[in-house]
């Protein structure tokens, strides 16, 4: 469960003055559902998700993630969240297993439970072949699997994906999409951001359209279609943003 209330982030830039990267963003994401944050580059998707993952502190407003407040209880929030973005890189000099182990330990997992969980995940994601290979030597697809394993190791109830498929080839992107569906099937709360319309149509239960830091429209795909009188997601998006 994610509940954002007026999340605002202001960056100060010497040349451009105040930048409202996120401006009063409020929404709810339910367990067992996928919430899609749709927006162009620079719309404020990443900033919003980073505040939810407690990597950034909101300037104003707050959010409750899995029942914990992102401002008051950031460590508990992080323990309940699996965060994946293209910016979350791997430690190149650690092996795939060491990397996942490291994060499991930081989440305070017992050693026996951790090893069992790693065996489970590695088997399911077919990662045993490169289990003891250093992350820097892995292909992009393998790296993405290691990142997924990292977000899953502590079995968090909330998953946050920031443009998880950007720059990936079709097969690797499909693995990710498949994985996001599995998360929903397991009853996790899933939020993900993208600027790819087709992904939104395929995956999301609820869609939020974000532009210039503001959440302009929200609803299920049928609701948005009805409200804006368009079938195509791209047309809906243009209409919302153009307003």
């Amino acid at each position: 469960m994610i509940e954002a209330q007026g999340l605002t982030k202001i960056f100060k830039d010497k040349k451009r003055g105040e930048i409202r990267a996120a401006d009063g963003v409020s929404f709810k994401a339910q367990p067992g559902q996928i919430y899609g944050l749709l927006g162009a580059n620079g719309a404020g998707k990443t900033t919003t998700l980073r505040m939810l993952a407690t990597i950034l502190q909101p300037t104003a407003g707050t959010a409750k993630v899995a029942g914990y407040d992102v401002v008051d209880d950031p460590e508990k929030v992080r323990a309940s969240v699996g965060f994946l973005s293209t910016a979350t890189a791997l430690y190149g000099r650690l092996t795939a297993k060491e990397f996942v182990e490291y994060f499991g330990r930081l989440f305070g997992m017992e050693e026996a439970a951790l090893q069992k969980r790693i065996d489970e995940i590695f088997a399911r994601l077919e990662m045993n072949e490169f289990r003891d290979r250093r992350c820097e030597k892995l292909s992009t697809g393998m790296k993405q699997k290691v990142s997924i394993a990292r977000t899953l190791v502590h079995n968090p109830p909330v998953m946050i994906f920031d443009e998880p498929t950007i720059g990936l080839d079709v097969m690797t992107a499909r693995t990710i999409v498949q994985f996001i569906r599995e998360c929903r099937a397991q009853g996790k709360t899933v939020i993900f951001s993208t600027h790819v319309m087709s992904e939104v149509e395929k995956l999301c239960d609820t869609i939020g359209i974000i532009h210039n830091g503001k959440l302009l429209a929200e609803g299920t795909l049928p609701q948005l279609r009805e409200r804006y009188g368009e079938q195509d997601m791209e047309e809906i998006f243009v209409k919302v943003v153009g307003e």
């Binding site: 993952a53 407690t54 990597i55 460590e75 992080r78 323990a79 969240v81 965060f83 973005s85 910016a87 979350t88 890189a89 791997l90 430690y91 190149g92 994060f103 930081l106 989440f107 305070g108 990292r150 502590h154």
Partner: peptide
């Protein structure tokens, strides 16, 4: 520079 800081900041460690 390598982007691993973001990964670790999203983990449970304070």
């Amino acid at each position: 520079e390598r982007g691993t800081l973001e990964t670790i900041l999203a983990s449970a460690v304070s």
